[in-house]
């Protein structure tokens, strides 16, 4: 069934080929070395997944891409320019609920437009449209606490997409959802990303998610994080996000062995 394309697509022409590049990035925190000479790039339209053991610094990499942190050495570039402040061109979705509990769904979703100064009527119209696209038509007046976890995630996604970012930064966004809801949302996300040609950097623990959604999987070591390997999975289609299909089992094993080697022995 063909997916409807959202009202207006983001303008990706200025991005060039490399959207995000990490160049020998190192970062310390409280005397601990978190990232050690990490270098990799994300190209326009690519979906890259970062996988590594817990606490390895994956979220730090994402924060660098979002402009929320600066490296101790090396550079982080977005669209060719060094990031000096918060990256407002990228949408950021975390596991935590970023919805404002005192606002209803529609005013949560239209918040980015409100900040930009868009007129009320247009805000509401665009919010309604995007809510319909994520399957939440009719829930505009609900408060977040009245919705299930999956529905709140959809609202968060709608809020992230409404201002048409070129890039998405995802930090284990679906970790808190039950398995079924997770798979459904993953499918929708993938569909939307492909429709809009979004560039995506996803941090995850979930190997099936990584193989199923990403074009490329980047393996990170335990802290201090280094790049260990990159696996190209674009050519194999794992269309079912609920499990690993036979042709992809070896990738699963490769990633799993890597994770196990990084977690064992502290």
């Amino acid at each position: 069934m063909p997916r409807p394309i959202l009202a207006a697509e983001p303008d990706v022409s200025r991005l060039g080929k490399k959207v995000l590049s990490f160049d020998n990035v190192s970062l310390n925190y409280d005397g601990l070395s978190i990232l050690d000479n990490v270098s990799f790039e994300v190209e326009r339209g690519e979906f890259v997944a970062l996988i590594g053991p817990s606490g390895c610094g994956k979220t730090t990499l994402l924060n660098l891409a979002a402009g929320l942190a600066t490296p101790a050495s090396g550079t982080v570039r977005y669209a060719g320019e060094i990031l000096r402040s918060a990256n407002t061109s990228a949408g950021y979705l975390t596991q935590e609920d970023a919805l404002l509990p005192w606002r209803d769904v529609i005013s949560n979703v239209s918040l980015p437009l409100e900040i930009k100064g868009v007129a009320r009527a247009e805000r509401v119209e665009r919010a309604r449209a995007i809510l319909a696209k994520v399957g939440l038509k009719g829930f505009e007046r609900h408060k977040p606490h009245q919705l299930s976890g999956g529905m709140r995630k959809r609202v968060s996604l709608a809020r992230t997409l409404i201002y048409q970012p070129e890039t998405l930064l995802l930090d284990e966004p679906f970790g808190a959802l039950d398995a079924q809801t997770r798979v459904l949302i993953q499918e929708e996300l993938l569909s939307i990303c492909k429709d809009l040609g979004l560039t995506v950097l996803l941090v995850t623990h979930d190997i099936v998610e990584a193989i199923g959604l990403a074009d490329r999987v980047v393996l990170i070591s335990k802290r201090p994080a280094r790049l260990c390997a990159t696996i190209d999975v674009a050519h194999v289609a794992n269309r079912r996000l609920s499990r690993i299909e036979p042709q992809n089992e070896r990738y699963f094993d490769q990633i799993w062995d890597h994770l196990r080697s990084q977690t064992g022995g502290g």
Partner: peptide, 14 residues
Amino acid sequence: VAPIHTISAKLLGA
């Protein structure tokens, strides 16, 4: 206030 809100505000360009 949960840090996620101050982060969101920054990232949305507030």
